[in-house]
């Protein structure tokens, strides 16, 4: 397994991200990861907060909000893969990383379920916020909080940084 991580570490993109002194390498990719988080998790939390603060849902158009969130997810996924290519062992030998991935997958599933609940409200009249929609919004808040904690704590809980250079 370590030989596999070492081979990934030597890929040109990962090496560039890790070793380039350019601000467009590791620093900018980290920024993109944060920007994607704000677009996806931020807007999802904004929707959750809005929904939890209401008794009635008005008919409204979701398409553009979801479009922005999916662009955020795309930015996050791409920047995440590049960061993983730079430090594969750091993430893949740490259970916190897998906990983060699990939280993201479940949060995205909840986001889609929430879309179903909100889309029902896109009829002609206002309708009550269902207990199910509230539960989904609350679960979404917890899942994104757990994702963010896991993401930050990755930097403090890894056992291996780089396999190929024997650093740990």
């Amino acid at each position: 397994m370590m030989a596999f991580f070492a081979s990934i570490e030597q890929n040109p993109i990962g090496t560039w991200v890790r070793e380039s002194p350019s601000l467009l390498a590791f620093p900018f990719i980290l920024f993109l990861h944060t920007l994607g988080l704000a677009m996806l998790a931020g807007l999802n939390i904004g929707l959750d907060a809005w929904l939890l603060g209401r008794r009635k849902l008005p008919p409204f158009e979701l398409a553009n909000i979801y479009r922005v969130m999916w662009v955020g997810f795309g930015i996050n996924a791409l920047s995440g893969v590049v960061l993983l290519a730079a430090y594969p062992a750091k993430a893949l030998t740490n259970w916190v990383f897998f906990a983060k991935l699990l939280c993201i997958v479940v949060a995205l599933w909840v986001l889609q379920r929430l879309k179903g609940e909100l889309a029902i409200a896109a009829g002609a009249a206002e309708r009550d916020v269902s207990a199910h929609a509230r539960r989904l919004a609350f679960a979404s808040l917890l899942l994104w909080t757990a994702t963010i904690f896991a993401g930050r704590l990755l930097a403090y809980t890894h056992h291996i940084l780089l396999v190929s250079e024997g650093l740990s």
């Binding site: 704000a38 931020g42 807007l43 904004g46 909000i65 994104w144 963010i148 904690f149 930050r152 704590l153």
Partner: peptide
Amino acid sequence: ESLHFCALTVLAGTVGLFDL
């Protein structure tokens, strides 16, 4: 750090949604 990031995300999401 984790709380700072959570807060940043909530701030960006709520302000961002209103701005949109």
